[in-house]
Design a protein around this nucleic acid. Sequence first.
DNA 1: GAGGCTAGTGACAGCCACTGACAGTTGACA
DNA 2: TGTCAACTGTCAGTGGCTGTCACTAGCCTC
Lengths: 208, 208
Amino acid sequence: METLRERKKQRTRDALLRAALELFVTQGYEHTTVDEIAASVDVSQRTFFRYFASKEDVAFFVPRLTEEHYVEAVRRRPPEEPPLEALRRSVLDSWDTIEQAIERYVPVELFLRTYKMIEATPALFAAHLRRQSETEEEIARIVAEREGVDPDRDPRPRLVVAVFGAVVRVTERHWSVGEDFSVTTIRQLTASYLDQVGPALTGNWREG
Amino acid sequence: METLRERKKQRTRDALLRAALELFVTQGYEHTTVDEIAASVDVSQRTFFRYFASKEDVAFFVPRLTEEHYVEAVRRRPPEEPPLEALRRSVLDSWDTIEQAIERYVPVELFLRTYKMIEATPALFAAHLRRQSETEEEIARIVAEREGVDPDRDPRPRLVVAVFGAVVRVTERHWSVGEDFSVTTIRQLTASYLDQVGPALTGNWREG
DNA sequence: GAGGCTAGTGACAGCCACTGACAGTTGACA
DNA sequence: TGTCAACTGTCAGTGGCTGTCACTAGCCTC
């Protein structure tokens, strides 16, 4: 962020990001062309593609921040904690502290609406799931490391991480279709769902 | 399959499907153009798109069969079975009986290689995950129905189905990178992983 | 502070997936 | 056998994305 050149670049990137997200959430992802985004920032389409690898890539700029934030939280957990407990605390802590990280780039409110848009747009939702699965692979390796097992011989790290991720995804999905979307809401929902999953798996639903 | 016209259509469709999968698995999905597929069956590109909604769509023709097969298996489970047990038996039964259904369209071996290709191609893998999540939504509704709960008020159906699906996905992924790919192998792997997930979630990994 | 260097950009041409419109052809069926 | 409908090919166009090339504006050295 030293030279004028770098500041200019940063400004162009930020402008493209903001413009893209704004257009996406107002008129929809599919109905927004890259030409449109570039034009609204007054650069050529070619320049857009020098900042973002693809149209999809812009949409996931902020989600990428939150994923990294989460992974870092997992890394920082004390190693004596059982895996599930470490994961649980990591997600909840992440939701508590993510807002500052986001606000540096876009208003949190815009991010939340982007998130909803991703869940509602099939092409983006697919990409979202794939990204999550990549994150899970990373987390599985961290868990394996913590527990001192080889993830390619012992399936437990990937199993635990996948099961945990599944619960998080159900939560997000529920949150994304609801009215009340705030960071607080999804945090509470996550905690609640994580509490319910144990009984749901083992319990008999048809008794009081 | 009565009239000549219908038989001709069927033949074109089958030829396109076979040609596409063959090209995909030999030279890769990304390196295969729709023009190439159409040319190798001697029809116009336009005709290809009259049979398949998209290039992606051909790749998932057979997976779609297996998904439907699985959903049907779940529907047929006796209602007194606990949810997890019903799901478990459904996947395993599906793997036992799927081969006939596939063989009507393509050789099972080609299907298995297609499956590996899907797992190895990011764009297809993303689509695969989205399709699975749609299937899970359907299954969740079936489970909710069986248990007599409202899936929009009670999160348990979606939770159980998502957790179960996560285990299946870890299994598939493991299978897809391995050497030994046969239907028998993935069936056994699935059974084994399902057995391990309970202990992995609750147990302490660091003791004997 | 003049001049060379280079990162960043725009303009243009081209590939590929996909779509709409229209016209030609070929089976279905009376 | 002639009419109708289904199926197909051709063509033109859009949108995402990439390579190339020339140009400009900020940087850095002497």
